[in-house]
Deep mutational scan, measured.
Amino acid sequence: MSRVPSPPPPAEMSSGPVAESWCYTQIKVVKFSYMWTINNFSFCREEMGEVIKSSTFSSGANDKLKWCLRVNPKGLDEESKDYLSLYLLLVSCPKSEVRAKFKFSILNAKGEETKAMESQRAYRFVQGKDWGFKKFIRRDFLLDEANGLLPDDKLTLFCEVSVVQDSVNISGQNTMNMVKVPECRLADELGGLWENSRFTDCCLCVAGQEFQAHKAILAARSPVFSAMFEHEMEESKKNRVEINDVEPEVFKEMMCFIYTGKAPNLDKMADDLLAAADKYALERLKVMCEDALCSNLSVENAAEILILADLHSADQLKTQAVDFINYHASDVLETSGWKSMVVSHPHLVAEAYRSLASAQCPFLGPPRKRLKQS
């Protein structure tokens, strides 16, 4: 649940008159999402009104509101027999009622949201009550392989729920002597030191190019640089560091992050930047690179990204790559990247197969709970 924001200063709310007192009302909304995959969808019983329910879910471990999704594969009634019906059901509720908006969509073979439908307002739910769409999607369109909505005969539904909580009022009075504290510009100011090479005390040599930097900042941000300058190493004695395995453009992006906490060109060089972040123990930059690479996972590059993640101990990226390969196994196994990995990294192939087997055979063990970014 997000923290209630402070109200904007009255002088910034309007260029008009300023009242002596004010009130700011925040209506709290808890948002969460749920993904439900139905394997072997074409084998569902086709009687009209037949119901399939998901397991229950909530916004978190401490949330007492429990929900589930309900599907009628062949419609709810005679009117909707040519459609799939989809509903959000409130299973248990400690209150007399709650209000919530919802959005349903289908994830296609690429994991993209399609055929989205959402409620136009927050509906009133009581325990045992459901709301949804009797005519969510035509069955003939859903079952047509050309539309790519049932890869490997799996129907994957994605649901986003927004639950309306209580409202909170914050009130106060205006004073004539309003003090406005300026925003912190530390990142910009440190970035200026790097860009202008002011007050530098060490030189970093990268592929024949020299960059002036500040030992204190490098040591504070990177345990690797800290070790170089702290001990009686040649880098500490000469205040000069030779860097041979990072390209200059990648190095500059890494230094921008060290000084400012930002990497504006990360998406263009996420793979190389991940390697640099791993070498210099820049954990936050490493996770930022993992996130960017996750966003660009595809059938063509899944094997290469899995190898990269394994090489640099990028655990979150590795998990996402394995899950992606499992979901698109029939396509990924035909790529040149996968065939190369079979020869060069057989242990990763074995890991992917083990994960695929456990996903398809849940009876082999208890269900695993899916539970950071600093």
Rank of each mutant, 00 (worst) to 15 (best):
R3C: 12
V4S: 11
S6H: 01
M13L: 07
G16E: 11
P17G: 13
P17S: 08
P17H: 09
V18Y: 03
E20V: 02
E20K: 05
E20I: 09
Y24G: 11
I27D: 00
F32C: 14
S33N: 11
W36P: 00
I38E: 00
N39P: 05
N39G: 13
F41Q: 11
F41W: 09
S42T: 10
F43H: 14
F43T: 11
C44M: 05
R45S: 05
M48F: 06
E50I: 02
V51Y: 03
V51R: 03
I52T: 05
I52L: 09
I52V: 13
K53Q: 09
S54G: 02
T56A: 08
S58P: 08
S58D: 04
S59G: 05
G60R: 08
A61L: 10
D63G: 02
K64M: 11
K64Q: 10
L65R: 10
W67G: 01
L69V: 10
L69R: 00
R70Y: 15
V71H: 15
G75L: 11
E78F: 12
E78W: 10
E78D: 07
E79F: 07
E79W: 15
S80P: 14
K81I: 02
K81V: 12
L84I: 12
L84P: 01
L84G: 09
L88A: 08
L88Y: 00
L89Q: 10
L89W: 03
V91Y: 01
S96A: 05
F104S: 00
S105A: 11
L107R: 14
L107W: 07
L107T: 14
K110H: 05
K110W: 15
G111V: 09
E112L: 11
E112N: 09
E113S: 06
K115C: 04
K115L: 09
E118F: 07
E118K: 08
Q120R: 04
R121H: 15
A122E: 12
R124E: 12
R124C: 10
F125Q: 00
K129G: 13
D130T: 15
W131V: 01
G132V: 02
K134D: 14
R138G: 09
R138P: 14
R138T: 10
R138S: 07
D140Q: 12
D140P: 05
F141I: 08
L142D: 08
L143G: 04
D144C: 02
D144K: 12
N147C: 08
G148P: 07
G148D: 05
P151G: 10
P151R: 07
D152K: 14
D153N: 07
C159I: 08
C159H: 10
E160A: 12
V161Y: 06
S162F: 10
V164S: 08
Q165A: 02
D166E: 14
S167R: 10
S167T: 10
S167I: 03
V168G: 10
S171Q: 03
N174W: 03
N177L: 09
N177K: 04
M178F: 05
V179W: 04
V179N: 06
K180F: 07
K180V: 06
P182K: 11
R185H: 09
A187M: 02
D188G: 03
D188M: 05
E189R: 09
G192H: 04
L193G: 07
L193C: 11
W194I: 11
E195Y: 07
E195N: 08
N196F: 12
S197H: 13
R198V: 15
R198M: 14
R198T: 14
F199M: 15
F199W: 15
D201P: 00
D201I: 01
D201G: 10
D201K: 00
C203W: 02
L204S: 11
L204A: 15
C205N: 15
C205L: 10
V206D: 15
E210H: 14
F211N: 14
F211V: 14
H214K: 00
K215L: 03
K215T: 01
K215M: 11
A216D: 03
L218V: 11
A220I: 08
A220Q: 14
S222I: 13
P223H: 14
V224R: 15
V224L: 14
F225T: 01
A227W: 11
M228K: 07
M228I: 12
F229Y: 13
H231D: 14
E232L: 13
E232S: 15
E234T: 14
E234R: 14
E235D: 06
K237R: 01
K238A: 09
K238N: 06
V241H: 03
D245N: 05
E247Q: 03
V250N: 12
V250C: 02
G261H: 09
G261C: 04
A263M: 06
A263P: 01
P264K: 04
D267Y: 09
A270N: 09
A270K: 02
D271W: 03
D271G: 02
L274M: 02
A276P: 01
A277D: 01
A281G: 04
R284M: 09
K286R: 03
V287I: 02
C289V: 12
D291V: 07
A292F: 08
C294S: 04
C294M: 13
S298L: 02
E300A: 09
A303W: 07
A303Q: 00
L308K: 03
A309N: 02
D310H: 07
D310V: 02
L311R: 03
S313R: 07
K318W: 09
K318D: 01
Q320I: 12
A321L: 07
V322R: 11
F324A: 05
F324R: 00
I325A: 11
I325L: 03
N326Q: 13
N326D: 03
S330E: 10
D331G: 12
D331V: 09
V332A: 04
L333A: 05
T335C: 06
T335N: 04
G337Q: 06
G337R: 04
G337S: 11
W338H: 00
K339P: 13
S340A: 14
S340F: 09
V342W: 08
V342Y: 02
V343W: 05
V343K: 09
S344A: 13
L348F: 09
L348Y: 06
V349Q: 14
V349A: 12
Y353S: 00
R354L: 05
L356F: 11
L356V: 04
S358I: 01
S358T: 03
A359W: 06
A359V: 05
A359K: 01
P362S: 13
F363D: 14
F363I: 15
L364R: 15
L364Q: 14
P367F: 05
P367N: 08
K369R: 01
L371W: 13
K372Y: 08
K372L: 08
S374G: 07
S374F: 14
